[in-house]
Design a protein around this nucleic acid. Structure first.
Lengths: 207, 207
DNA sequence: AGAAGTTGATTGACTGGTCAGTCAATTTAG
DNA sequence: CTAAATTGACTGACCAGTCAATCAACTTCT
């Protein structure tokens, strides 16, 4: 023990443990002691690094947001046409790393936290703005700038709604089916067609 | 004090106070003492009537579910055509009593509770089944029984998604706009058209 | 009518447990 | 030796749940 320079890994372990426990529990009612134990250390060390429970929670939220952004960026990189850009956002949203039951529960927890915590609300707001901006950028060539903002709102809501319902379904629910049904619904929206673009690379998990 | 036969009103006061506080706080971390105080009594009386905090929570959840069902039933009563039945469910979902910011937050809280509480999950499941059944019944004549179940899922998800995003928006957000945008999106779905049926009675609040 | 008993309403005060946060002390790497 | 890592043990606050004791309304018996 007491390896020097361990702070970064310790912090990351703590954050991942917190995300996992919050997701499993579906609530912020997880003790710092339990999080720290899961990350293989004492609660005192967690307090030493983060200063308080709130900071652990906030950093965990940042972590989830960052992971999602990473996923979106990766998918957008491969997209060339506007329709592909829309689909890239869908693929990112329903990637198995994001659509995992516990991850979705953690997202919901943070949505609720944002409801009464201004810092959390700010974090979520930038995420919403970025997603909205991405969607509008992808949709504008398809449907006009005017309709794009409405469409973006609809699509974002649809994704969130499918998420929230997914978290309630029993364990081994359909991963790919959610993406399919979402694509199907969106393909009917005005100006949008042939969403199911042939994938450049077909991943083994089929996300 | 100590009026006899006060139990029913006391219980109802407690439930309404609990719903309000849970909605305001966006979490179940409200003390029985605070709920009871808001309902104008001591915490001991709350325990006397409900036996424990869990039961207060569960009954509060039942109450929200019941209120929503009431709203749906009322709206469905007036609908004659299939399209009107779909719109009735939308109107119920976005009625100002249901779409209130705190009410939505309370719903989200219960969604999350269902995630780790089997009894809550059962309650939510019957609500989901009822809504799904209502939607399929309304949609089948429009799009065929096959497509109806998929459409029902999409519409239910869209409603939930608009809900969850609404709860995050600043206070005086648009009540009617959400309904409009939802109608617009749904009207593009295959088999569905002319959703904006002329209302039989136009309510002053415009819900 | 009124005394006496019954039952529900109601609460202040208490308890046992839990948890966030602190701290002084120990260990280890450089 | 110094600075970071690490923890066991402690504390102060808070909270769900309990309990014994009042209080107010009805009933019944005389």
């Amino acid at each position: 023990m007491a390896r020097i320079g361990a702070e970064p890994e310790r912090r990351q372990s703590l954050i991942e443990a917190a995300a996992a426990m919050i997701g499993e529990q579906g609530s912020l009612d997880v003790t710092v002691k339990d999080i720290a134990a899961r990350a293989g250390m004492s609660s005192a060390l967690a307090f030493h690094y983060f200063g308080g429970k709130d900071e652990i929670i906030t950093q965990t939220m940042r972590y989830l947001l960052r992971e999602f952004s990473r996923e979106v960026s990766a998918q957008l990189q491969l997209a060339k046409t506007p329709a592909q850009r829309v689909d890239a956002i869908l693929r990112a949203s329903f990637a198995q790393s994001q659509f995992d039951r516990n991850t979705v529960a953690a997202w919901l927890v943070f949505y609720l936290r944002a409801y009464s915590s201004p810092p959390a609300a700010r974090l979520l707001h930038v995420y919403h703005r970025r997603l909205h901006s991405n969607l509008v950028h992808a949709l504008s060539p398809l449907s006009g700038k005017q309709a794009a903002t409405n469409l973006a709102e609809v699509i974002a809501s649809l994704i969130d709604g499918i998420y929230i319902r997914h978290a309630l379904k029993p364990e081994g629910a359909q991963r790919a089916e959610a993406l399919t049904i979402c694509r199907l619904a969106i393909s009917h929206l005005p100006g949008i067609s042939d969403l199911q673009t042939p994938k450049t690379t077909r991943s083994p998990q089929g996300n």
